[in-house]
Write a protein that binds this DNA or RNA. Sequence first.
DNA 1: TATTCACACGCAAACGTTTTCGTAGATGTA
DNA 2: TACATCTACGAAAACGTTTGCGTGTGAATA
Lengths: 339, 339
Amino acid sequence: MKQKVTLKQIAKELDVSISTVSKALKDSVEISLDTRQKVKAFAQLYNYKPNNIALSLKNRKTKTIGVLIPEIVHHFFTTVIGGVEKVANEKGYNVIICSSNNSFDKEVINLEMLASGSADGFILSVAKETQQRKDYHHLEETMSQGMPIVLFDRIIDEMVCDKVIIDDSKGAQTATNHLIATGCRNIAIITTVDYISVGKLRTNGYLKALRANDIEIREDYILKIESIEDCETAIADFLATKKVDAIFAVNELFAVNAVKVLQKQGKKVPDDVAIIGFTDGILSKHFIPSLTTISQHGEEMGARAAKLLIDKLEAPDHEPEEYRTVIIDTSLIERASTK
Amino acid sequence: MKQKVTLKQIAKELDVSISTVSKALKDSVEISLDTRQKVKAFAQLYNYKPNNIALSLKNRKTKTIGVLIPEIVHHFFTTVIGGVEKVANEKGYNVIICSSNNSFDKEVINLEMLASGSADGFILSVAKETQQRKDYHHLEETMSQGMPIVLFDRIIDEMVCDKVIIDDSKGAQTATNHLIATGCRNIAIITTVDYISVGKLRTNGYLKALRANDIEIREDYILKIESIEDCETAIADFLATKKVDAIFAVNELFAVNAVKVLQKQGKKVPDDVAIIGFTDGILSKHFIPSLTTISQHGEEMGARAAKLLIDKLEAPDHEPEEYRTVIIDTSLIERASTK
DNA sequence: TATTCACACGCAAACGTTTTCGTAGATGTA
DNA sequence: TACATCTACGAAAACGTTTGCGTGTGAATA
């Protein structure tokens, strides 16, 4: 089996020095045209490619971006990755992806692993467990070692770094307002427990919209779900007694399960109960009825995050530190689950 | 901003040599207990982590696995990645993911990028375009440079390398047999164009099952779809004139769209027409009716692929070359779309 | 006192690059 | 002929590790 060919080998074969080969391949005028051509021909023949590892070591940068997400099997996060990849590749960066599986420990391990030489900077959405613990030492440490971090979606307010988010509260208001505008008044919300930052923000947006429209806020119209696994029974219990005419679900799965429960109750969506979701995933698009939803524009989030990170990576050293928070606009996608 | 601390810096601070520091951190008996403790304390204080890049260069291996898939926003592929990640991390490997976006050129570029130092070996599912072109020089070249490749799902028969696949034909037979067993006789198939290897294999399985059960094969019951975008109209046209009592769809989206079309025609699933899909994704699980389907066990595929690759990476050099093809069992998941 | 021997440590090479600087030889100039 | 000036190339350092081997120091032995 052939091995990768190195400058050294080419040099030896052609009986010149390593530096000559290196310069020749770079078309340096220092080297005679003759030698240049000879070297290039030889390099092409043996398919020479400079060794990235050696370059990384020499240049003290890897030209790769580490992406750390809570779940890899998740439509929203993969769209974000798509966005990151796109601008990263355009700018000559590699993307390396790890998932924390929502575990604090795995987040720490993966970050340290990547931080010790595999990536120049990070794009990260924090694990559920990390949000609970409020332990961010691994992030602080990484940053203090000179590696920039861009947080997205599930961010940490206390951290001083670049961030890309959507205005979850505003998105939730848009959703709620849409329900109100289409004539609904008894609007329930199916949301997550409060330590999930985005869940809390969306709940707040819902409350704000109700208040702004002088609609009474009823605590018993708020369902906070802890575990996504048995959300259907939770939703069924919740809806069994309520007489709502609309539901705002803070994610796709809640929305779909709400529809399921309603259909079992013999209720029609959207005629009896309108439903609006959050996140524009596969389910929302293809479900019957297709779901009206708030799009988070994951790809754009990823693209913006990558831009922020690369800007920071390529900024001259003396540049004063300055952190930015980009807020991506959400948009309402009207489909068949609302009137 | 602090920089990462190196052996050199520690050595300087403690006024010993670099080698002493290195050995001390490794608890070498060569170094006095005293010095060892001093060095370790200092290293911990400054959060010393060996630089992976330097190690990679020295050891001539990166301890990372490159995964190249056609699409990143795709449930099946992400489950595969999950499986890869799991066993890779267990064995101390990093995983770096790139998507080809089904483009031949991007596949070549990404592979070359990763091959020039970023990864020791690859797990890869080939792009649609590559399957059309039948140009595999980039794969051959990578392998000839000593980097093993494990192909999965969309593989290339002609390539000599490790492979992990499901028995697509058998899975399709299982699906078709299930339809037959539940009383269906007029079974249509919605499949892809032939150059997609898995599509072709599934079509073959369907045909085999029909033959084995002495059911007439009707060419007009076979719909081959080129572009997934406007599959709904294609399916609508197809089903407008046919009187079928069952449909086998080779992927989730075809299945879902078939349901959609049927409902518009006023037909009931599964009572009027039974539907079975392929791939156990989010849609199949949560759709109403939930879809009976053939599970490909993506996570297991990924895990097995990773194992194969790591085995090859860690095999002693003189080991004779030997390539294996692992066939993952599919399984039938019965849900509400069949009788 | 001379020799031996652990002990504790340092030197240097190697991995594959890039780049600065030095220089041998050829050519030109006075 | 003596010197300056190019031209074309090579040597070496640096990036951060690991590791085999060499070695100065002191103590123990003869």
